[in-house]
Design a protein around this nucleic acid. Structure first.
Lengths: 262, 262
DNA sequence: ACCTGAACACCGTTCAAGT
DNA sequence: ACCTGAACACCGTTCAAGT
């Protein structure tokens, strides 16, 4: 055992010395690979190639592809702005990695004060702060919609996920929502946020754009004699900027959770 | 053109005479294949094999795999019980294809009348009937959770989908919900129902069972000093029979939609 | 005892070449 | 003009065999 020759007697190689395989190292490499080439390229084979080994070796540390993707998601969950729960935070100015990210969530043009949840003072009431956390979560997922897609299937259970749930529960408690419905409500809130982001994973590429256009047309041109209400409402069904719709949806969910006893 | 020799001069073959390839024929074969082997087997290659041709031939009629899956979903949407919207319907006794299906949605044991949305008289108020339609939709998707998964990415735009949207809009209008929020609400209602069913697509197989167990354990055993509310609420977070949780979620959404103006 | 090469059994999609 | 064989460029996962 201890008389084996040094862990790896290689010294001349192009790669900066292959590090020992560990679960953490695999996940780090996976995160980096995703950042570089997208989740669709984070396959067991491609990742193994990146780590200078064969795919079979990864199965010693990762059970399957779904678990690998869940680990990547848990990593990204660390970027959710939980500070928004206290009315501070907003964008943690220290991280200049991705300056566009935070702006994407709630930043309507100033003056559009018809939306209290993302208005000038987001820290005012618990509802606004709850919406802000959910918007941050959605923003993180929207940077990698394919990841949101996996999140619907294999929910993470790591510390970042627990911290997010903890924060949401605290805000609902602050709002006086009974614990029973708060617990079920957190599930629904995260599900809608996740599903919304996941829906965007297919909305990339020209083909998807065309398909989406076809759906909008199907609604707008619905036969008014067979689908009168669809025809009458078509404008509303597809109306609104995505951030507006999402803000309304979060407000709607919060209202529902607060008002629906078990 | 019309002097070409009969469309297909083959006569001796094992197969009952290969029918001409059409989009409708392809979708029908896809539905049948899915019923027999599951959506994961409905690939362009496997389907082509079933139709006694090469995969390239399918691309004449179907743009890609996503569109094929959307077509299968639209087909199944024909089984959603829209009669529940009028307080009739419940299970269309003529179709004996899948007797367990209808029972799965709302059928708690009789006597559990604490849930008005699935109680003895589901046709009483518009909320109950709206929940009944959503439960029927969810039931259809739960028969093929993988299909629900595709539905999140490529929403169908066929007549069955339009009829479903039409029914939901009509019920919200009956409930006096303003058209604007009804339109956005229908989106959210279908999204939650779809996502709920989709979540079950990974919940099959022993590995997924173990993974789910790991998440439940992570919640129950969450460090009370770092995640006090998670630890205190863990029981509620994972409690409840799925149908109970879903019924509550639909009630919650309906309350939210009705109470949240745009 | 630990790790992995090589294989098994597949994929989606394209396009040059055939009928 | 229409259709498709064959190829391109990949997959996840397993397990016998090596070190």
């Amino acid at each position: 055992m201890d008389d084996s020759p040094a862990p790896a007697p290689r010294s001349r190689r192009e790669r900066p010395a292959k590090p020992a395989l560990t679960r953490a190292g695999i996940v780090t490499a996976a995160v980096r690979l995703m950042e570089a080439e997208g989740l669709q390229r984070v396959t067991m084979r491609r990742l193994a190639q990146e780590l200078d080994t064969g795919p079979a070796s990864l199965y010693v540390y990762v059970a399957n592809t779904a678990e690998l993707h869940a680990a990547i998601l848990e990593h990204h969950l660390g970027r959710v702005d939980l500070g928004a729960a206290a009315g501070t935070g907003a964008a943690e100015p220290g991280t200049a990695d991705d300056p566009g990210a935070a702006a994407c969530a709630g930043a309507a043009e100033p003056g559009a004060a018809d939306d209290p949840s993302t208005a000038d003072d987001p820290g005012r009431d618990w509802r606004g702060r709850l919406a802000a956390v959910l918007e941050s979560y959605t923003t993180v997922l929207l940077e990698h919609p394919a990841l949101a897609h996996s999140a619907l299937l294999a929910r993470p259970a790591g510390p970042h996920y627990l911290a997010l749930v903890e924060t949401l529960l605290a805000l609902l408690e602050e709002g006086g929502v009974p614990a029973g419905q708060a617990a079920w409500g957190v599930d629904a809130l995260l599900q809608v946020a996740t599903a919304t982001a996941a829906e965007h994973s297919a909305r990339t590429g020209a083909a998807a754009e065309a398909e989406h256009g076809a759906m909008v047309r199907a609604l707008r041109e619905a036969d008014p004699s067979r689908y009168p209400k669809v025809a009458a409402t078509a404008g509303d069904l597809v109306s609104g900027r995505p951030t507006e719709r999402l803000a309304w949806t979060f407000r709607m969910l919060i209202n529902g959770v607060a008002a629906t006893p078990r």
